[in-house]
Design a protein around this nucleic acid. Structure first.
Lengths: 352, 352
DNA sequence: CTGAAAGCGCTTACAG
DNA sequence: CTGAAAGCGCTTACAG
């Protein structure tokens, strides 16, 4: 390896040109008070001329600072292993930047209990982190939390589902509306005009899981726009255990059996199980996420296709984005994930 | 931000415990000669006990070293813009690690002239880089080049197409065989048994573009394995200009018109143009890569689907992998890209 | 074979 | 408002 070229652009060079000490230069670079307007100006001019870029390594070393990032995401439940993937991405990013003085602490909440969310939010605020990565599953609670983060000048990125007007550094995740829209578009290949579609939202806190509703909205819009004459019913299932789900679906199917079911999240495998146990074979089924249980049903043909949006990458990029921001580097504020279609034919090639 | 905890694990602490100077500790950490076997051993023991991890930032700063990486990839020709995407990924990675004393130099060669490849290879070897990123489009020339890299102890990663037994740090790109295999699998939905398929390889140096042949092999294997009775013809087109291509295809189609054409690289748009100009509408068409001209034909329905394998990510991960390796971090040695299927329905959501 | 000193490009008290 | 000194955790000559 070669030696770095003689440094003629450092803080020392600036000091020499401005006829001041490096301490003064440091003050204006870091916007610290105690510099006369005049010297400040001359120094800034020189900085521009030299196109000075601070040496991040020297800075981190000298300041002995550690960048502390908190990540708050749902815990992996026995109902769905989805959050394994974002967590993996978060940990991957964390280990890549550990060498550069960054610590990432993971916090988890139960998607079925919003109290656990607010508890963890309080926890995080007490610890005074430098940045936050959040999966804002509960809308109102998230908004309250983020408002307190803003008060404490803690920048944050959002992953998995978006929240409008939160002054977040970045959103990394699906375009929820488009995701539902594409699902509808593909559905049109599976059914014909004037058939019936059923949208199924499964969540104990549906009113709070705004992201499900955005997907539903995109789904409906696609059908409405193209005037297919397809009728769209919907059902919200507020209990996530299989028995409750079965009871509800039985009732709905008895009343009006659909030709296609669109499940707005990863719990599509429960519906597939319902199909299997009740020998329902003529109903198409679409849902979300590359989970082992979903893939099983995809293989068998019970599920027709799954939509997946790179959950691991969301975690990885989420951490990297907040880190880049804390390093004062520019960060793309909206990073939509691609909308991947998983079928029986290509699932074995998919990388989560 | 918090102060880093009191450092009780640094080189200084090791020196104290071993009753030596930090210079000696440095020598054993970096495997430099001039340390007695005995002190070396005691120091190593302490390093293990403390689970000592060197501070990369301090190391880079003190050594004034710059990590220099060369990237050698095809230039963007007017025939195909494919290599824009990997280049973008390379540059993205380069700018992310520039702060950490890394310089990435890009070199380009003309895919239609292997001389330009060997010239650039010579160039790179003269400059004594610390690491190399290579798209080994020309098989024999690449093998010769890499053998010289090994002699010079320059580690390298391969992207886009693999080469066996080269002792590379990593391969990042498609599983070529599987890519062709999946293409064949999906083709079966477009045609029926006992129809005819034509494989088209377009390249001025086909014998050297081994990666096209690997895709063809996967494609054939899939059909053979499932005994569909489909007949597979093939044609190699050695001139990449449209007129030559048209002439050849006209001849082939006259003799035996296929029901489906599989183009093994991104030049599928030329075949689409041929279809269009000659009013061929009943032949299915499959090819590679998310390029503007390909997407145009996909929209029109001339191309049925495209296979795409994250070219930008290949460039990004290629640089990051060689960088991690030079930092002594472990790197996954085979990183296959997902095999994405692009259709009229989902192309607008695809991220290259 | 080993040690002591200087320095990498910054930041952080402290002194004036 | 400004400067001089010490130090971050290493590496690099140089001296012995």
């Amino acid at each position: 390896m070669k030696k770095r070229a003689e440094n003629t652009t450092g803080i020392r060079e600036i000091a020499k040109r401005a006829n001041v000490s490096i301490g003064t230069v440091d003050r204006v670079i870091n916007n610290r008070p105690g510099v006369s307007a005049k010297t400040k100006e001359t120094i800034q001019k020189i900085i521009e001329e030299l196109d000075y870029q601070p040496n991040i390594m020297a800075r981190m070393l000298a300041s002995k600072k550690v960048i502390r990032i908190a990540a708050l995401i749902p815990s992996v439940s026995n109902e769905t292993g989805y959050w394994n993937a974002p967590l993996k991405g978060i940990n991957e990013a964390a280990s890549e930047i550990r060498n550069f003085g960054v610590v990432v602490d993971n916090y988890f909440f139960d998607q079925n209990a919003k109290q656990t969310f607010t508890d963890q939010a309080d926890n995080i605020l007490k610890q005074n982190y430098d940045g936050l990565l959040l999966a804002p599953m509960f809308e109102n609670e998230s908004i309250a939390f983020l408002s307190r983060c803003r008060q404490n000048h803690i920048p944050f990125v959002l992953i998995n589902s978006d929240l409008a007007d939160q002054a977040n550094v970045a959103y990394i995740g699906p375009d929820l509306f488009q995701s539902g829209y594409l699902a509808a578009h593909l559905s049109k290949y599976l059914i014909s005009a004037s058939q019936t579609v059923l949208v199924v939202n499964i969540s104990r806190e549906i009113d709070l899981h705004h992201h499900l509703l955005k997907k539903e909205e995109g789904f409906r819009t696609s059908f409405e726009k193209e005037h297919t004459g397809v009728a769209i019913d919907k059902v919200d299932i507020n209990e996530t255990d299989y028995d409750s789900l079965q009871k509800t679906l039985k009732r709905v199917f008895k009343k009006n059996k659909p030709d296609l079911v669109f499940v707005t999240n990863s719990r599509v495998s429960s519906v597939a199980r319902f199909f299997e146990e009740n020998k329902i074979q003529d109903v198409k089924l679409i849902g979300y996420d590359f989970l082992e249980e979903n893939i099983e049903y995809l293989k068998k043909g019970t599920i027709d296709f799954l939509i997946c949006q790179k959950p691991q990458e969301q975690g990885y990029k989420g951490v990297m984005s907040i880190y880049q921001h804390l390093l004062q580097a520019p960060v793309e504020s909206v990073q939509y994930m691609p909308i991947d279609i998983i079928t029986k034919e290509n699932y074995s090639y998919y990388k989560n």
